[in-house]
Nucleic acid binder design. Structure first.
Length: 740
DNA sequence: GTTTAGGATTGG
């Protein structure tokens, strides 16, 4: 996830990975496969940055496709974009109206405002790690100025458009001067994944070289793991800014200094120049691209450099050898305090029999059993000591590279839980020994990395073969990559097989349909389909009075209603029980003018000293309301209507409590502004406020629809409340299941 | 604005 600012003349194409293909905005429709797709357009509207939590943001923008592809003239070429999280914050700071952006890693939704704004019927949602914005600055925001701040790399990256960029110079590795602070490029010949130092930071150790053939060791200390070089292979290219040359043991070394930043590239000649960095913006121009490509081809010609990778698939593992393994984590189990078992596969079959490790399902995260076919491909990896802590953070489903793994013929005893089982002589076990020698460690690889793509391809081949050979298995666990989830603090079981304990005789679906309501049945059926496919879409609002279920209103819609209400400036008289005043919209540091909004509070609450426990807030946008929700425990948005104060339409939350929003049922509420009675109450909660306001409170529930079939009929089944949660974890379309 | 580590395997 990043906003990449591209420098002058490079156009938004130069950093964009080549596997991405652009689709015209007019062709976007819900349900379209957006994997590896991009959309390009000019920013014609940029909304405010909406803070939804301390560290979470939403921003809405509109882009218009304004190049040749517009020939489809009657089509909608302007589209709403909703950006979430840190990317929204970054976008807000880095992108201006008029810039041309290229977006990737988005999903397509239905635009709730299409009727109103007449824009594209869809909107694009950008969130998560895959979302990227490539920005091409179109106009200098200020006239040419010599006073460009050089405070940080971020500014100079932006500045690259304002002034002729304060161009970085890179020092060759044979020209390093002791005590100087330099920028360097190099090819990685050795590296260790970051490991915890005895001090406050993680430490990365690497060695790089360049055309000068000098090899220089580098030591990087950073507190945050993401700020470390993202090195996956020897042969990767790194660019480091602001490293200091020091002497250790008569050799020059490089150590990071303040303002340090690093970008890493894959080392394959001809491969995509895809930057890996935690820097939200960075300078990158044609010269940089050329440097990367020159280093790649130089390295390829050097026979003395370590082979590009020690990577070996399970199918080529030699007993006793050390190697790097790229694999997917399927399950893990704690063995003891110094040892954790990782169950992994890479889709290939190891020619040696693999050690079987029996572990207690209670200490296993992820499925505790797999199909026989798949089980035969799974390698048991025992990781020790310092790697245990890192393994703790791994989630089943993740793609990993394990460095300096050792294949050991199973004559050694497996520790902990497995000590009672007979030792399987001649079976291969895999050990990641303690320490960091030879770069020992584990790294999570991003899903889009070429290595992961390759492993996935091999896995899919295997799955296809299984499907052809044993179609009856239709092994659902094979597509599983959902870690166990939590609901109300309790872990939810994600097992592939559930055993029904009911004693009922199964009946057919046609028998179910013919029988009277209210009976309990037991059926054996096939799942034809289910919806929604995304768990968050299963979250609905439920009215316990009229038993209606509705969708949670889209934020765009909620924001629009707030915005309409905030423009209304009709005269009104506040209710007699209310005291009126103003609240400042703090936090707006742009400084121009301090905004304030009208608020009303209950006189009673005021006299009880509970002034900040409940406010009735007028004329605020959704963004402002969320902002104030950090300060005031309960906020009821109001507007003037017919000379009186009234609640907003119940399409929007009637109450904001911190991060939580509460909705009322339109059908069952008789909403009116009344003073809540809170005498003797310690805490004002949503129930008290809803009751006072005549609002029928809606509850959040999970709802899923399953379409079942057997030989006799089909049946739609609704699962709701907590039931909707587990079903997604273990049932896939096509699988036979036995609900009751 | 300090410190950390400073490649180099035998070990369950």
């Amino acid at each position: 996830m990043a906003v990449y600012i591209l420098s002058e003349g490079s156009g938004p194409g130069s950093l964009v990975p080549p596997h991405l293909t652009r689709i015209p905005i007019s062709l976007l429709s819900p349900g379209i496969n957006c994997t590896n797709k991009t959309v390009k357009g000019k920013v014609i509207h940029k909304g405010p940055l909406v803070r939804v939590e301390a560290d979470d943001f939403i921003l809405k923008t509109v882009i218009k496709e304004d190049d040749a592809m517009e020939s489809v003239c009657s089509q909608k070429t302007s589209i709403n974009i909703v950006i979430f999280g840190a990317l929204a914050e970054s976008f807000s700071h880095r992108v201006s109206t008029g810039d041309v952006v290229l977006l990737s890693g988005f999903t397509v939704g239905k635009s709730p405002t299409a009727n109103k704004d007449k824009l594209h019927p869809c909107n694009l949602l950008l969130s998560g790690d895959d979302a990227c914005v490539y920005v091409s600055k179109q106009k200098p925001p200020h006239p040419r100025s010599p006073l460009v701040s050089k405070r940080s790399s971020l500014i100079s990256a932006e500045g690259s458009r304002m002034v002729k960029a304060p161009k970085y110079t890179y020092v060759r590795l044979d020209e390093l001067k002791n005590e100087s602070v330099v920028n360097v490029y190099g090819v990685v010949v050795f590296f260790k994944q970051p490991f915890k130092s005895r001090g406050t930071d993680y430490c990365s150790s690497l060695k790089i070289t360049d055309q000068s053939e000098h090899k220089v060791g580098c030591t990087i200390f950073c507190e945050r793991l993401e700020d470390h070089p993202k090195i996956f292979h020897t042969g990767d290219i790194v660019r480091m800014h602001r490293v200091k040359v020091k002497i250790y043991n008569n050799s020059l070394t490089l150590v990071n200094t303040s303002g340090f930043s690093v970008v890493t590239f894959h080392g394959t000649v001809g491969g995509a120049v895809e930057p890996r960095t935690s820097s939200k913006t960075f300078h990158f121009d044609e010269d940089d691209r050329r440097t990367v490509e020159e280093l790649r081809s130089w390295a390829a010609s050097q026979t003395l450099l370590p082979s590009v990778s020690a990577a070996v698939p399970l199918s080529a593992v030699q007993p006793s050898a050390y190697f790097d393994l790229t694999c997917q984590l399927l399950a893990k189990a704690t063995v003891d305090t110094t040892c954790t078992l990782l169950r992994v596969w890479d889709g290939t079959r190891c020619p040696h029999p693999l050690l079987k490790v029996i572990v207690d399902p209670n200490v296993t995260e992820g499925p505790s059993s797999f199909s026989k076919q798949k089980e035969s491909l799974i390698a048991n990896v025992l990781v020790y000591d310092n790697h245990v802590e890192f393994a703790r953070q791994l989630k089943p489903g993740a793609f990993l590279r394990i460095y300096n793994l050792r294949a050991i013929l199973g004559s050694t005893k497996v520790p902990g839980l497995t000590c009672s089982q007979p030792v399987e002589v001649g079976h291969l076990a895999f050990h990641l020994h303690g320490g960091t020698s030879y770069g020992r460690g584990i790294r999570v690889l991003p899903e889009n990395s070429p290595d992961v793509q390759e492993v996935k391809r091999v896995m899919e081949e295997f799955l296809q073969e299984q499907d052809d050979e044993f179609p009856e298995l239709n092994d659902s666990e094979l597509v599983w990559s959902t870690p166990p989830e939590f609901l109300d603090g309790e872990a939810v079981d994600c097992q592939t097989v559930k055993t029904c304990r009911h004693q009922l005789q199964p009946v057919t679906l046609s028998q179910v349909k013919q029988s009277d309501a209210g009976q309990v049945h037991h059926v054996r059926v096939q799942l034809r389909s289910y919806e929604p496919h995304r768990l968050h879409q299963a979250l609905k609002l439920f009215c316990s009075r009229c038993t209606s279920i509705q969708d949670i209103p889209d934020d765009e819609l909620v924001a629009a209603i707030f915005s309409e209400a905030s423009k209304c400036s009709e005269a009104y008289s506040p209710p007699p029980w209310a005291l009126s005043g103003h609240v400042d919209l703090a936090g707006d540091t742009s400084g121009a003018q301090q905004l304030s909004r009208s608020v009303h509070i209950s006189t009673k609450l005021m006299t009880e000293g509970k002034t900040d426990q409940l406010i009735f807030l007028m004329g605020c946008t959704l963004e402002e309301t969320c902002h104030l929700a950090a300060t005031y425990q309960n906020i009821v948005p109001v507007s003037s209507s017919g000379g009186q104060l009234a609640l907003l339409d119940l399409s929007v939350p009637f109450l904001f409590r911190g991060r939580k929003r509460y909705y009322g049922c339109k059908r069952c509420s008789e909403a009116a502004l009344r003073e809540p009675s809170t005498e003797g109450m310690q805490m004002i909660d949503e129930k008290i406020i809803a009751e006072a306001l005549g609002v029928q409170l809606l509850q959040l529930v999970l709802l899923m629809k399953l379409e079942l079939q057997d030989a006799t009929d089909t049946l739609d089944v609704f699962l709701w409340k907590h039931a909707g949660h587990w079903v997604r974890g273990w049932v896939q379309p096509g699988q036979v299941t036995t609900p009751s």
